[in-house]
Write a protein that binds this DNA or RNA. Structure first.
Length: 523
DNA sequence: ACAAGTATGACGTTTAGC
DNA sequence: GCTAAACGTCATACTTGT
């Protein structure tokens, strides 16, 4: 059983099978209208999705709002109040059980080498308070049973996995070039892909994170995001710097176009003043990934000393040392034998923002490096979002999660898509200031609303927001990568780490927006 | 003086691809 | 088995503001 616990939302993931699905839910006492609405949304096969939808619709009925017309149905009102009682009971049970315990146990089992599916099934069946050796025993027993079953025809789990691997062959091939479903001038024909029904919009959604994570993370994220295949793209195809990222989204991929003007594609074009000092034996034309920290003055000093010592034609081992340092810290040549880290201004432009974009908050240099290193490469994201231009010619209503310095907003704006509404959720005050400042300076005509914490975005809050905006067209964001990123030496704990587990809030909120969208469509 | 904010150097492992 | 790359964290010294 997988559990999300929030003030007015409970997600339960159950697995079972049985007879006629609608009858079973009706027998459980859920009202007819709600059961059919949920089945209409999810089909008849996905029991857990149907139950989630039923619970969400019932909760929506109890909220104040403009379209609670169904509340007049006495049957429904009864069930709704029953649900509230159930919910508070459930809250106390879950709280005593502890959500953290779930993550902890899950982590432990995965650390022991068990797959996500194995750990998931064991915790689901035995509960997360079960001693770890009993869980291991359960998994072993289950695997034995599965092995016995190999002759049979019920290889459900195995088949699912195979199908996913087959579906992903396309992107695995493209992992090497990191061109995803295509980049400009890659010569790939863009044919629209088939998106699993549960993942289709409205709303459109776009999720981003680092491409290179601990093993299994992208498979896991894809599983939550409706089994949609991730698109892995390196921003080196859009700019002078590498940036390997994965994107899961349900946007069309046919008819994409790049932002104009095309930005500089090489270091030498992007930073022409460095040419004068650039030695022949440094063959770099692209920068490595822009990170949140820059190299030290000590390192540049040491490089200068080594080169000064070895004269105009440095020996192989010196070159090797210097090049290694340059690649590691993205140094560029700024004087005779002198390298330097990139300035925040230079990074802004390479990342696709205008110069001084991050000065908006009046913030420190360190903070500018920090938030720039965490942001979208605008041209890359804009290419993917470009298909929205003809879909929303009169403007778009956006729910922007983990907005940061506003990469998504800048990309949409540069594409010429009016921003009618942006609800931005961002915990960093400096980032909120930067976005607010850009919003004012770029003369936005729409409305920008700031929210501090994704955890405040509850069902009730979303309902309220969507009554105001009349729904969202796009849910966009990249959740924290701290516990996934290769540079992290201390807490690269995976998707369940302190910060990276906020991915589940992205999913939770997206899924709620989908359900409220369906709910509103009936109003 | 003191607190809060800012800058800096030092630090190892997991991926993937050849 | 090798190379190359990676939206980072921690402790400490320094700076700024009251």
């Amino acid at each position: 059983m997988y559990i999300f616990l929030y003030p007015d939302t409970v997600y339960l993931y159950l697995s079972s099978s049985g007879s006629k699905i609608s009858d079973r839910f009706l027998e459980m006492g859920y009202p007819l209208k709600v059961v059919f609405r949920a089945i209409e949304e999810h089909g008849e096969n996905d029991e857990e999705a149907i139950l989630n939808a039923i619970l969400t619709y019932l909760a929506l009925e109890t909220l104040p709002g403009e379209d609670n017309h169904v509340t007049s149905d006495p049957h429904l009102s009864d069930s709704a109040s029953t649900y509230i009682e159930d919910l508070s009971d459930m809250n106390s049970i879950l709280e005593s059980q502890g959500q953290n315990k779930y993550f902890e146990t899950m982590n432990l089992l995965e650390d022991m080498g068990f797959s996500y599916d194995e750990a998931f099934a064991a915790i689901n069946r035995c509960g997360c308070e079960t001693p770890i050796d009993e869980l291991v025993e359960f998994i072993d027993a289950a695997n034995m049973a599965k092995a016995d079953d190999l002759q049979g025809t019920t290889l459900y789990g195995k088949k699912q996995k195979l199908d996913r691997d087959e579906r992903w062959t396309y992107s695995v091939k493209n992992m090497q070039l990191m061109i995803g479903f295509g980049v400009p001038n890659s010569g790939m024909k863009t044919v629209d892909r088939e998106i699993p029904a549960a993942g289709k919009g409205p709303p459109y959604f776009y999720y981003e994170n680092v491409a290179y994570t601990p093993k299994g993370v992208w498979e896991n994220m894809s599983r939550f995001l409706y089994e949609i295949e991730p698109e892995f793209v390196d921003s080196m195809h859009f700019s002078a710097a590498a940036r390997k990222r994965g994107y899961i989204h349900n946007l069309p991929i046919d008819g994409r176009f790049p932002l104009l003007p095309i930005p500089p594609f090489t270091i030498q074009e992007a930073l022409p003043l460095t040419n004068k000092w650039w030695p022949k034996w440094d063959q770099r034309t692209k920068l490595n990934c822009i990170l949140i920290r820059h190299g030290s003055a000590e390192d540049t000093k040491k490089i200068k000393e080594e080169l000064d010592k070895s004269g105009p034609d440095p020996p192989e081992h010196v070159r090797k040392y210097v090049l290694e340092q340059c690649r590691r810290y993205n140094f560029v040549w700024v004087g005779k034998n002198k390298v330097a880290p990139l300035d925040p201004d230079e990074i802004e432009v390479i990342m696709g923002y205008s110069k001084y974009h991050t000065r908006g908050g009046g913030i420190s240099t360190t903070a500018r490096y920090q938030c720039l290193g965490n942001s979208f490469q605008v041209d890359t994201v804009a290419y993917h979002l470009s298909v929205l231009k003809k879909l929303f010619p009169n403007g778009i209503k956006v729910l922007s999660l983990f907005s940061g310095i506003g990469g998504a907003e800048v990309a949409l704006h540069k594409l010429g898509i009016p921003l009618k509404f942006v609800v931005s959720v961002e915990s960093s005050e400096t980032c909120r200031n930067i976005l607010q400042s850009w919003w004012e300076q770029s003369n936005q005509k729409g409305k920008l609303i700031h929210i501090f914490d994704v955890r405040d975005v509850t069902l009730g809050k979303l309902k309220e927001l969507m009554d105001m905006t009349e729904g969202f067209d796009l849910v966009i964001g990249g959740s924290p990568c701290n516990n996934l990123a290769g540079r992290n030496r201390y807490t690269r704990d995976g998707l369940y780490g302190d910060q990276s587990s906020l991915f589940f809030d992205y999913f939770r909120i997206l899924d709620l927006v989908k359900k409220i969208t369906v709910y509103r469509a009936y109003a």
